[in-house]
Design a binder for these strands. Structure first.
Lengths: 113, 113
DNA sequence: CCGTATCCCAAGTGATACTG
DNA sequence: CAGTATCACTTGGGATACGG
């Protein structure tokens, strides 16, 4: 089963991905940006149920540090900041799609039982 | 960008997957079982760095409740318990593979920069 | 509007011991 | 060996206020 999966003595690829996407809200943020493209801070906040100001800020900053998302600030008053996926972030789209596909499949399976 | 991803008013598939795989150690456990097949409790513990007895127990139980893994107990002394992926768990393999592939790709990208 | 700092509580987690 | 219970503690993260 394992031959194409297990990197003997080299679990880094999997661990690396895990490190990037783990974080209470990161995948949700990535998913949202994948769906909505370029969006303002407030829009993200309103679309992620239950997230607090503090958590959104910190998660966005971490994703930015990992070059998954891009932060664009407009020099105006009141401030306007938009976030979007970087190329690296967009390269996560297959993963996101796989997650969607799996979730869909499961709901179909449940219906059949 | 969004057409194949965004389920307007229906984020359930993504959220459902998220619910299943989120948990501090779940993906690591799934990955390990994907690599090693059927393994005993103690082997899992020894192969996941930093996990405690309590955490491993609770995460295994949750994954079992979600039908991702199967628990098989042998009626002997001392006890022997083996865990493995269920069909539902195995259906997560593409996701795990995608995570591995992405991690690999990133390490190559970094080398080129 | 967006970001950060501070305070503070409680859920989550570790250590330990006990049971089957 | 595998699992559970208890207790104590750490720390994630919520509420709030202030700053740019």
């Amino acid at each position: 089963m394992a031959d194409t999966l297990c990197y003997v003595g080299n679990k880094e690829p999997f661990e690396y991905t895990l490190a990037v996407i783990s974080g209470k809200w990161k995948l949700k943020i990535i998913y949202l940006l994948a769906c909505m493209g370029t969006v303002r801070y407030g829009v993200i906040k309103r679309n992620i149920d239950g997230i607090t100001h503090k958590m959104l800020s910190s998660q966005l900053k971490e994703l930015e540090n990992e070059s998954i998302i891009e932060r664009r600030e407009y020099p105006q008053v009141p401030p306007k900041v938009e976030y979007s996926l970087t190329p690296k972030g967009k390269s996560l789209l297959p993963l996101v799609q796989e997650m969607c596909a799996w979730g869909e499949k499961q709901s179909r399976v449940e219906l059949m039982e």
